[in-house]
Design a protein around this nucleic acid. Structure first.
Lengths: 180, 180
DNA sequence: CTGATTGCAAAGAATTTGCACTGCT
DNA sequence: AGCAGTGCAAATTCTTTGCAATCAG
């Protein structure tokens, strides 16, 4: 499974031309202390095929080193965030308030979260880079992190809904308990 | 202060040409039950000059109706979110993990959060709309919510830093406790 | 009237922290 | 050796929920 994940991750990266760099190399070049725990966590994040939340990251890490603690995961994530090596996402809160993490890529990309099927699509376009450039130019803001998350209905859910189009307007009025 | 807020809010909306609509009217037109609590909360959100978090919203609401509860605030926010009348932001977690809310505008705008001074700038550009159009066109995704948040250094912090440019590379290595 | 909405209190989820101990360099 | 990093357990912060009472339509 680690292998599959790794392959999937590379495929994903290639398709999007995302040009990730090695987290470990980055850490070393910045003089960060490389503990066993950090190596493990960083390796998992680097090779993950999905966006990882803390629970998933912790669980996977514990299969390799059972003593690893939640706190270490949070602290490592915090370190990587501050070094701007990973991005933090919430994927439109499709599954609660937790956060997800992924290796930062040279060209930012964005995430499309389908409210119906829950799938996450990634999307990259030069327009995003242009937009960031315009922001900097017009507002004088120096961009360090840019996060664009989109929620809606993916193509397949849309066509699926169109086929039996007896659907009325979405019934969003009920309380959360009812909508769950 | 309610007056000032209202004026500020209108000014902000005008500057960005954001064309907000009345939340109350929207709710009525959708047949939503209008309780006293909802009127109050909706009015506060509508006229707020800043982005409100739940605590601020609750506190303000309680000045008008002291019995209003946290739970009602969360439930009302949830309702407004599902009706897509408000947007949820986290403003790059500059102040913890809480969320902020604002009335949804016809043309989406984005938020620039300065990591140094903590100020939030709003920014609107046709490029954002173009970007969304391109996403829909190329991926077939039907966009219902789009949230772009940017973190970095605002113009004034940048020029302030430039003036006494003895600064080294940002010292991001230390632990959270140290960075706070 | 009657079901949707509320307040209350308690639970739950996500994240952070203090402290003694461990392990890089 | 010395201090950054870790594990543990408790604390904090933010959000949700079950239930009896209340209110809008």
């Amino acid at each position: 499974m680690a292998n599959c994940d790794s392959v999937a991750a590379r495929t994903r990266a290639r398709l999007l031309q995302l040009e990730r760099r090695s987290l470990l190399d980055e850490l070393m070049s910045k003089g960060v202390r490389l503990t066993a725990q950090r190596r493990i966590l960083v390796e998992i994040i680097q090779n993950a095929s999905n966006h990882l939340d803390v629970a998933a990251l912790l669980k996977e890490a514990q299969t390799r080193e059972s003593s690893i603690d939640r706190a270490t995961v949070y602290r490592t994530i915090d370190l990587l965030k501050r070094l701007r090596l990973i991005d933090e996402l919430d994927l439109m809160h499709l599954n609660g308030e937790k956060h997800y993490y992924e290796v930062k890529t040279r060209r930012d990309h964005l995430h499309l979260a389908c409210f119906e099927c829950g799938r996450i699509e990634e999307f990259a376009t030069p327009l995003f880079e242009e937009l960031k450039a315009e922001i900097s130019r017009r507002s004088g803001f120096q961009i360090q992190v840019a996060r664009l998350e989109v929620g809606g209905r993916c193509r397949s859910c849309r066509t699926a809904a169109a086929s039996h189009e007896d659907r009325k307007e979405e019934p969003v009025l009920r309380n959360k308990t009812a909508s769950a």
